[in-house]
Design a protein around this nucleic acid. Structure first.
Length: 554
RNA sequence: GCGCCCAUAGCUCAGCUGGAUAGAGCGACGGUUUGCGGAACCGUAGGUCAGAGGUUCGAGUCCUCUUGGGCGCACCA
């Protein structure tokens, strides 16, 4: 929609230049926006202000030069005028908006899709929590943001795949196996002094019980060495299955679950090290193998292979990221908890050492979630294993509210998640505010069909009876969705979607309160039904990006 | 000590590549319905955009410093 105005300005600028009135060399950035104030038209541009300096003229006189070459009125434009320090304001005709409104109905659930991504292949990795314990609320934020981001990017025309990286090797898995083994013996009555550095959470007892149910006392009396492989794998699989289930309940699915272990099966890890060594980025010191990451903006060098001969987590991560790029993605995006930010330069360094372009890899950091119950902070201590799990939160507040709350804030600020507010079916709860609007519209449709009226199609509806300013304001708002999708996708900022929806819905409720939809005036009723159907579509499409349902009734 | 993130109304937060008078929600106060869902609507109060410099025609937005908070600085994953 703005593009249309922008193109007009571009044309006018070109003409003004060939007419000798302006002398800019390269086309300036043209900002077109919806003015905040009333009486400032439907669109506004600041080009004249931007150009003023290089043209060595006052902004207003630049604006006047541009204005000469703009159509002062047409089928789409009602008027163009200069305002304030040099803004050029456009007022559009009703037909301009009404035609585009019909477009919303024609596009239906496709409305809001754009092709800004041009089918670029993106791999989005998120959650990727170690299978050493159930997902907690922080992972929930990552899951909601990651999944919605994938939906958003798809809507914006990217070819997106999602992936969960399963860290199924290494020390933590050994610790998990050992924890299960100790709990197993404990369940048979042995007195265990449970070490602090192992997993103390209740869930490990559950896993131990599962093993007993399956294998009985088969392992009793054996050495840790003997039983560890079984316990490690069993516990890991059991917990991973739990994670899968939790995510499924949350509506989050992955295209692929990528196991760290598979990198070792194909020796991709060893090959990556060899390859880096050939390039001269690897050296040996103190019996370990190091990467010269300090050559690539990392603060110091990093160990790839420990003295013990074991490879570090970083080492397999190198192979993993190389593998991702080799699979043909032009962009790989990782969503990490903010506590991993120190790890970013390291991965960037190694990818650069490997010769990949800097902007292939992008990390999005998601800040912490503080759980609250009203004013009270709910303490979360991972050490004791006493944290609130994602599934507990979902159980308490529901999928829709949980997802909405995770998505409503910019992910680079801390999030206060208020359990009381999220589960309240009250006006304070923003999820219900939006869903309520959708249900309300559906309810009007039900009433309409009771009196023999159906929402008309875009080809048959007569919208000329829509004249109130509120309707046009509502239409303008709806038509912004494609821009919201494009901009938030390019910025990787999902939170703009719920903010847009909240604004839109607020205008709808206000319209509803002022203008009765169903009345004796049949043509007007039909036109308003059509208008609301488009609002409904817009709400539903927006909610679908968030993975939140759009209910017909509540 | 070094590095990253954050600081906007009483609270929780928006503010898109710098643009017109800084916006919502909640909370507070007051109002609206014998009609389409009152889970709603309308109004009032509430701000030195942490502080100080700087760049600019123009700064909440960009730069520097200070203060305050979060996080990270492993041969853990």
């Amino acid at each position: 929609m703005k593009l249309y105005v922008k193109q007009m300005i571009v044309k006018a600028l070109e003409q003004a230049r060939s007419g000798g009135e302006l002398k800019f060399e390269s086309e300036p950035d043209i900002v077109v926006e919806k003015p905040k104030g009333t009486g400032q038209g439907d669109f506004s541009t600041t080009v004249a202000l931007t150009l003023a300096k290089s043209e060595k003229k006052s902004p207003r006189s630049v604006a006047e030069s541009i204005l000469k070459y703009l159509p002062s009125s047409s089928a789409d434009i009602e008027s163009v005028e200069i305002a304030g320090p040099g803004f050029i304001n456009f007022k559009m005709t009703p037909e301009f908006f009404l035609e585009r409104l019909k477009g919303v109905a024609r596009q239906g659930c496709e409305f809001g899709s754009v092709n800004a991504g041009k089918n670029e292949k993106i791999l989005l990795e998120f959650v990727s929590a170690n299978p050493t314990g159930p997902l907690h609320i922080g992972h929930g934020r990552g899951a909601a943001v990651g999944h919605s981001l994938s939906l958003l990017l798809k809507r914006a025309g990217f070819d997106v795949e999602t992936e969960y990286y399963v860290n199924d090797v290494g020390n933590q898995m050994n610790n998990l196996g050992r924890s299960a083994w100790l709990r197993y013996r404990e369940l048979f009555g042995e007195k265990i002094n449970f070490p602090d550095d192992l997993y103390r959470g209740e869930y490990v007892k559950g896993t131990a019980q599962e093993i007993i149910d399956l294998k009985g006392k088969e392992f009793l009396g054996k050495s840790e060495e003997e039983v560890l492989p079984f316990f490690r794998e069993f516990a890991g699989d059991s917990i991973l299955n739990g994670i899968r289930e939790d995510l499924a309940v949350f509506g989050v699915k992955f295209d692929r679950w990528f196991k760290e272990g598979s990198l070792y099966e194909d020796d991709l890890v060893g090959k990556s090290v060899d390859w880096l060594r050939e390039k001269g980025h690897v050296y040996e010191k103190d019996g370990a193998v190091w990467l010269k990451s300090s050559d690539f903006n990392d603060e110091k060098d990093r160990v790839l292979v420990k003295q013990s001969g074991e490879k570090t987590y970083f080492c397999s991560d190198i192979a993993y990221h190389k593998n991702k790029i080799d699979r043909g993605f032009s962009k790989i995006i990782d969503l990490w908890g903010a506590d991993h930010h120190g790890y970013v330069p390291r991965v960037q360094a190694v990818l650069e050492a490997m010769g990949y372009s800097k902007d292939v890899f992008r990390v999005l950091l998601v800040q912490f979630v503080a759980l609250k119950r009203g004013k009270e902070k709910v303490s979360m201590s991972t050490r004791s294993g006493e944290f609130i799990t994602l599934s507990e939160v979902i159980e308490e507040v529901g999928v829709d509210a949980a997802r909405y709350f995770f998505l409503m804030r910019s992910s680079d600020t801390h999030l206060d998640f208020d359990l009381e507010l999220a589960k309240e079916e009250a006006p304070e709860n923003p999820v219900f505010y939006i869903q309520y609007a959708h249900a309300r519209i559906c309810s009007i449709f039900r009433n309409a069909s009771d009196s023999g009226m159906v929402v008309p199609g875009p080809e048959e509806v007569d919208l000329s009876v829509l004249s109130e300013a509120d309707a046009f304001s509502l239409i303008h708002k709806m038509l912004i969705l494609p821009e919201v999708v494009e901009k938030s996708a390019l910025a990787f900022e999902v939170h703009r979607v719920p903010h847009f929806l909240h604004d839109l819905v607020s205008e709808f409720h206000s319209y509803y309160a002022k203008h009765r939809v169903l009345s004796e005036d049949r043509p007007l009723s039909l036109a308003r039904l059509f208008l609301l159907d488009c609002v409904r579509t817009t709400i539903a499409n927006g909610l679908s990006i968030m993975g939140v349902s759009a209910p017909d009734k509540m």
